[in-house]
Design a protein around this nucleic acid. Sequence first.
DNA 1: ATGAAAGCGCTAACAA
DNA 2: TTGTTAGCGCTTTCAT
Lengths: 345, 345
Amino acid sequence: MKNNNVTLKYIAQTLDVSVTTVSRVLNGLGEQFRISKNTIELILVTADKLNYRSNNIAKGLRLKKSSTIGLIVPDITNSWFAQLALEIEKEARKHHYNIFLCNSNDDLKIEKKCIALLQSWMVDGIVIVPLGLESEHLVKASKSGTPLVLIDRFFEGVNLPYITSNDFEGSLEATQYLINNGHKKIACFQGIVGTSPNNQRVNGYKKALKNNKIPFDPALVIGTDFGYHNGYTCALKIIKDLDKTEITAIFSTGNQITLGLLKAFKEKGVKIPDEISLVSFDEQVYSDLLFTPLSTVSHLNENLGDLAIKMLLNQFDTNAKVKPKNVVLKSKLIIRDSVKNLNLK
Amino acid sequence: MKNNNVTLKYIAQTLDVSVTTVSRVLNGLGEQFRISKNTIELILVTADKLNYRSNNIAKGLRLKKSSTIGLIVPDITNSWFAQLALEIEKEARKHHYNIFLCNSNDDLKIEKKCIALLQSWMVDGIVIVPLGLESEHLVKASKSGTPLVLIDRFFEGVNLPYITSNDFEGSLEATQYLINNGHKKIACFQGIVGTSPNNQRVNGYKKALKNNKIPFDPALVIGTDFGYHNGYTCALKIIKDLDKTEITAIFSTGNQITLGLLKAFKEKGVKIPDEISLVSFDEQVYSDLLFTPLSTVSHLNENLGDLAIKMLLNQFDTNAKVKPKNVVLKSKLIIRDSVKNLNLK
DNA sequence: ATGAAAGCGCTAACAA
DNA sequence: TTGTTAGCGCTTTCAT
C-alpha cells in the first residue's frame, strides 16, 4: 500500500524511458527539451495514475536547497507571533516555500539550537523573532550562507536586515497621552530588559516624561519579561503601595503583561480607570471587550508577513550584495476608556 | 565562509580516515565499533573545530525518514490551536523530532495539499486537526505509510486514531446549566456544520433540551463556521428579532464566535446577562476579564500535546498492529457571571 | 528527441 | 579496529 516507492525510476521502468526524461517532463521541461507529445502525455498520465509525489528530500539533497523557510518565534501562543506565523506561512506558500516552525521559548540556548537545526535542514532562509540579547549566532548563521530576516527586534550596529515597528514613537505617544490627561506618576511595566522592543518602549516612555519635564523615577519601571505572570506580580506590588507611591497610571509594554495585570486588579477590586489608568502595548481582538475597554498601541501590520518573505526572497535572488533596506513600521494609538482625565477634576 | 561544506567526507579526508569511521564516531557508535580512543577524540575535536553539522536531508534520504512530524491546524491564530502547537512542538523536541507546521485555513483543498507536501518531506507522522468533513485523503495517507493522529475532530466509522474532548458532555452540561437557570428559549451559535465538534456540541445542546422536555426549534441553531465574523453577524440577527423570538440565552460553540458575538452586543448596547445570557465553549486566558466574565466550557487539556506525540510514536515503534486507543478528554464548565438566573424573578 | 552516468551527504552491509 | 562500496531519489552535464 505504500506509495512512497513510486519514484522517477519506477515510472521510467514501467514506461521504458529514461529517468532523465521522466524528470524533465514532470518538471515541466518537456517542451523545452522537445520531448515528443506522446511521451510527455504518457508520463504525465502514468505519474498521475501512480500517484507520484516527488521526494523533496532527494531533491533537496541534490539541489542543496530545501524550498523551505525556517521561522523562529519566542512563543507561538502569543497572538502577535501567531498572527505573524500565519501570514508568513501564507505568503511563503505563495512562493512555493514551506515553513519549519520553532519556538525558542525566550531561551537563548533553544534559539541557538533551532538555528543549528534549521541549517541542518538546509532551509533557504530564516525569519526570526530573536530573543534579542545576543547576536553572534545570528551573524554566524548569516555569514555561513543562511539569509536572515529579523522581526520585531534588532541589534544596534549589527548588519542584519530587520523589520520592526516604531516602538519608540508608539510609547512616546502613549505616555504623552497619559500625561495629557494629567498623569505624572506613571509606572512602566517592562518586558525583557536589554531587548530592543523593551529598550525602545521604555525609552519612549522616558522621552515623554522628559519632554514634559517630569522627573524620571527608576523605581517606577518594573518587570522582568513579557509574560502574564510578570504582569500579575508587578501589579500586586503596585497595588500594595498605591497610597504611598501615588501612582495614577500604568504604561504596559506587552499584551500578556497587561492580561496578568488586569487579573490582579480585578482580584483586588482596583477600578480602571477610576483608581488607576492604563495604556497597553499590543492591540488585541478583545481589547475592546475587556471589563474596561483598553487604550492600546497597535503595532500589528497587515502585510508584515508579506514584507518579511519579500525581504528574504530578495536575498536569495540577488547574488549581488544589494543590502535590503530595513523597515520600520508605524504603530498607532487606539484610544478607549482605560485612562481617566485628571484635568477634569 | 559557508560552513555547509563541512561534510563527513571532508573530515575524513583531513584526518585520513574513512567516512564510515567518522560517521560512526559522530553518531556515538565509536565505542561499539571499538574505534581507538585516539581516533574518536581526534574526530570529535575536529568536527567541533570545523563546526560540523550533519546534513539532515542526506540523512533523511538515506534513512527514508526525516525525524520530523507534520502538524496541520486550521488556523494557528486561534489560541486553542496555538496552544496545541506549542505543546506538540515541545513534546516532539523531547523525542528529537521537529515540527513542520501547516495551516489548512479550514479549506479542504489546502488540507489535502498539506498532507501531500508533508508526505513528500517524508515526515514520520502527522498530527492533524482535520477540517472534518471528509476522511478519504486521511485514510489514504495512513495506508500509504504515514501514521496519523487526529485531534479534536474524528470520523464515525473511520479507523484513524484520535484524541478529542467530550464536547457532547460539555455542551450538555452547559445547556443544562442555562436551563437550570430558567432559560427555555436558547439559541445555539454553531460552527462548521458536519464537523464532529460541531455535531457533538449541537447534539449536546439538543439532548439537554430533550432531557428537560423543551421542544427543539431548528430556527434557534444558527451560524456557519467557527469564525469571529460569523459570531458577529449571527448576533446582529438575534438582536434584531429579540422581541419576537424571546430568546433569553445563547450557547456559543466556539471562542472566536463568542468574540464576534460580544462585539455585536456591545455595539448594540445589549447587556449580558441582564438582557441575554451566554455560555461559550473554549475557555481563554481573558474569559474572566471581559466586560462580562464569561461562563465557559474548558476543553483545553494540559497534556494534550504529550498524548498526541505519544500516540504517534507508539505507531512508529510497534510494527505490530497494536491499535492505539482513542482518547476522549473531559471538558469542564467554568461558571462566572454571564448567565442570569430567571428563577429568581 | 532521449539517455548514461555522476554525484549531492549520508548509513550500513560486507570485507578485511 | 577500520575501510570499501552500494545506494537512498533526484538533477544535470555531456553524449548521441
